[in-house]
């Protein structure tokens, strides 16, 4: 059985420069998609990624990470758009780091691509009618 989950990996400073993510691919045959990363040498870092693979391999991979000292959190927060409130202005277009907002061609309505959202929170206060909502 396959699983795919969005998780946040927190790296302590001493692990930052080790090629840990690479081993997930090599040793556990997992695929990952990095959604967001902030890694600064000699300091803490984090990666938001979507990790997928066979369930057993997935669990082994997670165990490997935990043992290596990586703190793992599920990406439990969720940002969604209150469609009643959205005026389709487009103010969010340039604040989203992942390009989750797109302009639909003819209507010029603003499409929110939930799959691209990494819950960074940038759009929450940038949206004038406050249509973007954070849920836990």
């Amino acid at each position: 059985m396959k699983v795919a989950r969005k998780i946040v990996l927190h790296f302590p400073a001493q692990l930052v420069e080790k090629a840990i993510a690479y081993r997930l691919v090599k040793d556990f045959d997992l695929q990952f998609n990095i959604l967001k990363a902030s890694i600064i040498p000699d300091s803490e870092g984090f990666i938001v990624l979507e990790l997928s693979g066979e369930k057993d391999a997935y669990n082994q991979g997670i165990r490997f990470l935990t043992r290596a000292g990586v703190k793992i959190e599920p990406l439990s927060q969720n940002v969604s758009r209150n469609e009643e409130k959205c005026t389709h202005c487009g103010a969010c277009l340039t604040v989203c780091p992942t390009g989750a907002f797109e302009v639909e061609d003819a209507s010029r309505r603003i499409f929110f691509n939930h799959d691209k959202c990494i819950v960074c929170g940038n759009c929450l206060k940038a949206c004038p009618p406050r249509a973007m909502e954070l849920h836990f």
């Binding site: 389709h88 202005c89 277009l93 340039t94 604040v95 209507s107 004038p128």
Partner: peptide, 13 residues
Amino acid sequence: IPTASLSSYSGAL
């Protein structure tokens, strides 16, 4: 430079 708008074109339409 990427652009964003404050006026809703789809609303105006």
